[in-house]
Computed example of a mutant assay.
Amino acid sequence: MDFWPEFLASSWGREFVAGGFGGVAGIVSGYPLDTLRIRQQHSSKSGSAFTILRRMLAVEGPTSLYRGMAAPLASVTFQNAMVFQIYAILSRSFDSSLPLDEPPSYTGVALGGVGTGAVQSLLLTPVELLKIRLQLQQTSSGPLSLAKSIIRTQGLRGIYKGLTITVLRDAPAHGLYFWTYEYVRERLHPGCRKTGEENLTTMLLAGGLAGVASWVACYPLDVVKTRLQQGHGAYQGISDCFRKSVQQEGYSVLWRGLGTAVARAFVVNGAIFAAYEVALRCFPSAQLSQESESNK
């Protein structure tokens, strides 16, 4: 019975649970917009986000907007726990001379984010591959049956298709992501990086703007990744996908669906950071736990 209090008082426990809350909030709040983004990237004939939304509601029903959500939702707690904990470790490792009560430098924040993005790609690649294929299909087969089918016919290489482009997308994007969040929250509420006393509005705005900045920076790579992972076998690799897409549809294809992605990024990442920060403040720190034990 003593496990949970001790777990939540530890750094790993607090980061794990708070990261899980943030991830769940982000997935639930932004998944319909993510489905629209994927369908826009998939084909030039899809139309605008509003056209796709209206067609999906009329033909496939409201639940189609959440098709494939089980795959990212099932992994989101562990994924976000990894992201926030690895980021905390890496950002600190670049500023090892700083005392623990001082926030890491912006350089440490950016480099920690780059490393975090690269590491999390190992978990994210198969999850996004399943999500993309489920979002594009018209049937309602589940992620487990799809994963088994891919592994049976293509092996682990098939389930990890798109790993390289995911790393190329996520490493720099996460560096910009965490840097923007830390910079904006400090500008909106000076001193909050050290005191942690920013309000909910600051969390939402800083998180939302961090998401927008990172998505704008990596969006062309995300379009290529979506097309590589859709499973049609039309492309031989990253450069081949880029070349054929531009030849057939022009450079504008690399920005198709950006408006939907930006809207989703603001909502999702505002929710992620707000839920994460609020949850983190609800758990006792190791220091408080030790003080409580000493007073007994």
Rank of each mutant, 00 (worst) to 15 (best):
L65F: 03
T77P: 12
E186V: 00
P220H: 04
F94I: 07
Y251F: 13
L122T: 00
P5T: 02
G26W: 07
T116M: 13
H232E: 15
L254P: 02
H232N: 13
Q154L: 15
A171T: 02
T107I: 10
A275I: 00
T116K: 08
P284L: 08
F78C: 12
S239I: 10
Q287K: 15
F50E: 12
L136I: 02
K161V: 04
K131G: 00
L136Y: 03
A70R: 14
R264L: 11
A171E: 09
T107V: 09
Q290N: 06
V267L: 14
F266N: 01
S29Y: 07
K161Q: 14
T166V: 10
A286G: 10
S64R: 02
G196F: 10
A271D: 09
Y31K: 09
I238K: 13
I27C: 10
P126W: 03
P126G: 05
E293Q: 15
Y235G: 09
A206Y: 02
G26L: 11
L122D: 04
L8H: 00
T202W: 12
P32W: 02
P32D: 02
T260R: 12
M203I: 00
Y235N: 04
L65N: 02
N269R: 11
G68T: 00
L129V: 02
E102N: 07
V109Q: 10
S75C: 11
M82G: 00
V216G: 00
E60S: 01
G19K: 05
L111N: 03
A25L: 14
L111K: 08
F3W: 15
Q229V: 05
M203R: 13
V246I: 14
I27K: 11
A210R: 10
V28T: 01
A217T: 04
A88Y: 12
E15Q: 12
L228I: 08
D101A: 08
I27A: 06
M82Q: 06
Q41T: 11
A71T: 05
A206G: 01
G233A: 08
R169E: 15
A71Q: 11
E186D: 07
S239P: 03
